[in-house]
């Protein structure tokens, strides 16, 4: 959006012209042939909300118009959400209104029939763009069609292949073994975690990752237990190469859903190639498959609950994945 739009000088000719018998809602609809009017209750009581406007020549743009510090006389009469602007035009970065009408009972046509002029400058008018939270958070999904197909395939596999297999596995294998195997799988990823820490110049953390591996592989029975944390309080670092690339300032590219892998981004998908190649489990027959099966035995129920509760879980998964990923990068 053009920056100059942010500050607009607007002169508003005020004339209260609505006939008392008019159905204001009909009138309102005529004034807005397209778009949805969104009344906003803003916290700042010094603003009086007038309405939103869309423009035929700027379909991507919607203005939320608020008048600041309306004089006391008008403020009493201006009931929020009961004002609208007539014949709004967007000319040379300026809003031009032919009139403003109100429907509050306090607004009497006779009393306010005189034309009044509200001088309004950049401090008086606040323009909010038709903002999209996903764009504000840099969530980009240009290949949504492909991603939705992949999401559908993954979802089908989760529900109809992995879940039944998991049910059998979890019914045979008790919790402490599943948790132990998960710790073991995590421990094997020390090269990935350590490598990522090194690439981020976090040498101390890389050292802790190495120490954790050594302690757990010996005293922790190949990582089945976690004495490094239990005895020495050494935290695990959930690092990967995608995070290392992010620390170098590489953007995420865009959102992509891959079969078996689930939600990721272009940057993280490239990072995952390194993760896979440096993970010892990749060189053990069925190692990665077992790790995924074991992991999902602990968390698949959460996935199923989330999936059941949403009409369109794809959007929720995508947005949540982006936020969580950014939290990891930030920390």
């Amino acid at each position: 959006m053009c920056k100059s739009l942010k500050f607009i000088f607007c002169v508003l000719a005020l004339s209260i012209s609505l006939p008392a018998h008019a159905n204001w809602r009909d009138h309102f609809e005529v004034a807005r042939p397209q778009g949805i009017d969104l009344y906003k209750s803003l916290n700042d009581e010094s603003f009086t909300f007038c309405g939103t406007e869309t423009f035929p020549d700027r379909p991507d743009f919607k203005a939320y118009i608020l008048i600041k510090d309306v004089s006391a006389k008008y403020a009493e009469s201006f009931d929020r959400n009961e004002l609208y602007l007539d014949n709004v035009r967007f000319l040379d970065n300026t809003f031009v209104f032919s009139s403003i009408s109100a429907y509050s009972t306090g607004f009497d046509k006779t009393e306010y029939s005189a034309v009044a002029v509200f001088p309004m400058d950049e401090n008086s008018v606040l323009i909010l763009y038709d903002r999209d939270l996903t764009l504000e958070l840099d969530i980009t999904d240009p290949i949504e069609g492909f991603n939705r197909v992949m999401y559908g395939i993954n979802d089908f596999m989760m529900l109809y292949i992995i879940r039944p297999v998991n049910w059998c596995y979890a019914s045979i294998c008790p919790r402490y073994m599943i948790v132990g195997f998960k710790r073991m799988c995590d421990n094997f990823e020390f090269i990935v975690k350590g490598g990522s820490c090194l690439l981020q110049a976090r040498f101390g953390d890389a050292g802790i990752v190495g120490l954790r591996f050594l302690i757990n592989i010996t005293a922790g029975v190949v990582g089945f237990y976690d004495p490094a944390y239990d005895w020495f309080g050494m935290q695990d670092y959930r690092e990967d190469f995608g995070l290392a690339f992010a620390s170098w300032g590489i953007g995420h590219g865009f959102y992509i859903v891959l079969p078996f892998m689930g939600p990721t981004s272009i940057r993280d998908a490239v990072g995952a190639i390194f993760d896979y190649g440096l993970d010892p489990k990749s060189y053990i027959y069925g190692g990665q498959w077992f790790a995924k099966l074991n992991w999902s035995a602990l968390y698949i129920q959460d996935y199923i609950n989330m999936n059941d509760s949403k009409k369109d879980p794809y959007i929720f998964v995508r947005d949540t994945w982006f936020i969580i990923r950014r939290i990891k990068i930030k920390h």
């Binding site: 009344y39 906003k40 209750s41 803003l42 916290n43 939320y64 606040l126 909010l128 903002r131 939270l133 504000e136 958070l137 840099d138 936020i323 969580i324 950014r326 939290i327 930030k330 920390h331």
Partner: peptide, 29 residues
């Protein structure tokens, strides 16, 4: 009241939206 909560972010600058989302998300996790 709920609308006012839902639209809280709308008059924030982009940086604030991102910072608050990350901080709020971190706490939530």
């Amino acid at each position: 009241q709920i609308d006012s909560v839902m639209n809280t972010w709308r008059n924030w600058p982009k940086d604030k939206i991102n910072d608050e989302a990350i901080r709020g998300g971190t706490f939530y996790l």
